[in-house]
Design a protein around this nucleic acid. Structure first.
Length: 478
RNA sequence: GGCCCAUUGGUCAAGCGGCUAAGACGCGGCCCUCUCAAGGCUGAAACAGGGGUUCGAUUCCCCUAUGGGUCACCA
């Protein structure tokens, strides 16, 4: 049974690099019917940010990365917040001291700084037992450090392969801080083991510190988990993702108008590729095909252009009713909340669904609906449509009386289209020469979501005739 | 700087010793079309450089270059 964990620190907004890590952890577990757990790593009390834990919960919920064990939902390996497990770590640290894999250190920060060290000098490694006991009894602040033996460690990563690090490169890291809290390095190992995590999935920035963890596992006699180190994600400038460099957080992306499903789909492909070239995936579909084997080693740059395209793909495939509900606020704002009978919001929404990458594009697309824009008669001139102001005027004056005769009941797209085309024939015009002027008269714009007769149907008889009349006036007709 | 890792078109990427080096986004063109989108077709665009190994290297090895990561009582 595969067990993975997402272990963020509640220090602010949710980075999309973190989100991708969470996504891969979720997918690796789900692909094999495993368990995905959420663990909050809040051992650094000074960096806690109010509400940060809520952001983590909300983000996972919004993206559908539901965890099987963790805060709020519980589980057999709780508690799932490290500060609530504080008392758990010290006994393990003491066990290591007894086994001589760790030792007490009483050096203060000031002392360490004054010694100007590259690496801890093991000043406290060989303190006499009685001296240690004395200091502990007197309440002298201490930390517990891991003793790194001479030698080297080679480990296997599922993505990067075999990696060897000489122990000279590693220092005797602190396991328990002077406030009694474990460091990340220690808590992580203890928790991963006690929570029976089988696959440790994290960013590749942990690659070089992995030997320290392995030494810990060995000191305890525990099995080393499977490691899956993920390639880094860089921003569009090729820099490490950070809040300072713009939209790096999930929330920022939401604010820009990206759909959670599109974000998930897109970041899944940053560092991973599907075997069959397919690119549109829902979370559930990803969970069926995701494979560690297809994760790449090289870091990738975040590209808003492709995400925008992906967003459009997701919008296009939305169920029309779902899309309508999402679009409604934008429709209302662009149509100023009026619901005159010629405006069928559902119909309008459907015309717009395949034309946008973002919902916020809706108002501009429909700005001609509520009010006919001021436009120049040059709009009627279109070379490819073979339309000029003269043909446009002739076309509109010819169609107006014909449309006036159409009853409200017969005011439908197909019917109006046929009438227009027939009218064009009597004038010996190409279809475009009659349709383009009508469309332009109705929209007052170079382009619109819908053609001539479609717009006519959308506007209804009265408003359509009015706009055609306005156009005739502009063109100098009567 | 030491150590670790990476390096295929602008970007995401397939490739796992022999290929006209896929595909996607973006960009250009064409088709379709009641404008614009959508859709279909299509074009330009890449193996960082140098040595090896091999009958043969994008694929394996070494060096160089570039980029990144890491060297905390942060995670």
């Amino acid at each position: 049974m595969i067990r993975t964990r997402f272990a963020p620190s509640p220090t602010g907004s949710m980075h999309i690099g973190n989100l991708r890590t969470a996504l891969y952890e979720y997918l690796i577990a789900k692909r094999h019917g495993g368990v995905f757990v959420l663990r909050i790593e809040d051992t650094d009390q000074s960096r806690l940010v109010d509400g940060a834990m809520g952001i983590i919960f909300d983000t996972l919920k919004l993206t559908g990365l539901n965890y099987d064990e963790g805060p709020l939902v519980g589980g057999d390996y709780g508690p799932y917040i490290q500060s609530e497990r504080k008392s758990l770590y010290m006994p393990y640290a003491k066990e290591l001291v007894e086994k001589q894999h760790a030792y007490y250190c009483f050096c203060t920060k000031e002392q360490l700084e004054s010694r100007n060290l590259q690496k801890y000098d093991r000043h406290c490694l060989n303190l006499p037992q009685n001296q240690i006991a004395e200091k502990l009894a007197s309440g002298t602040p201490f930390v517990i450090r891991q003793f790194i033996p001479a030698g080297k460690t080679t480990f296997k990563d599922e993505i990067f392969g075999k990696i060897t690090i000489e122990h000279e490169e590693i220092e005797d890291q602190v396991l328990i801080k002077s406030d009694g809290m474990p460091t990340y390095n220690f808590a992580n190992v203890i928790d991963d083991h006690t929570m029976a995590i089988t696959h440790v999935v994290r960013g590749s920035e942990y690659l070089t510190s992995t030997p320290k963890y392995n030494l810990l596992y060995k000191a305890f006699g525990w099995d080393i988990p499977t490691y899956v180190h993920l390639p880094l994600m860089l921003n569009e400038q090729g820099e490490k993702l950070s809040k300072r460099h713009g939209a790096a957080s999930f929330q920022d992306l939401l604010d820009m108008g990206y759909l959670p499903a599109a974000i998930i789909n897109y970041i899944a492909f940053l560092g991973w590729s599907s075997p069959d070239n397919r690119e549109y995936f829902t979370l559930a579909e990803l969970a069926e095909v995701f494979d560690i084997k297809n994760i790449s080693k090289s870091s990738s740059l975040f590209d808003h252009k492709k995400l925008a395209w992906m967003n459009g793909e997701h919008i296009k495939r939305l169920d029309s009713e779902v899309f309508y509900k999402m679009a409604l606020p934008f429709l209302e704002s662009s149509l100023k909340g009026k619901t005159a009978d010629f405006r069928d919001f559902r119909k309008i929404a459907s015309t717009v669904q395949s034309r946008i990458a973002f919902l916020k594009e809706i108002p501009e697309l429909l700005d001609f609906v509520d009010k006919l824009p001021e436009y120049d008669i040059a709009l009627f001139v279109h070379k490819k449509m073979k339309s000029s102001t003269e043909t446009a005027l002739a076309a509109l004056t010819a169609i107006l009386p014909l449309y006036e005769k159409v009853s409200t009941e017969d005011w439908h797209n197909d019917n109006l289209y046929n009438i227009a085309v027939e009218c064009g024939k009597t004038l010996e015009y190409k279809n475009s020469q009659i349709l383009w002027p009508i469309r332009t008269a109705l929209s007052g714009k170079e382009s619109s979501p819908g053609g001539a007769s479609e717009l006519c149907e959308m506007f209804g008889k009265e408003e359509s005739l009015r706009r055609i009349g306005v156009a005739i006036g502009k063109l100098g007709g009567t």
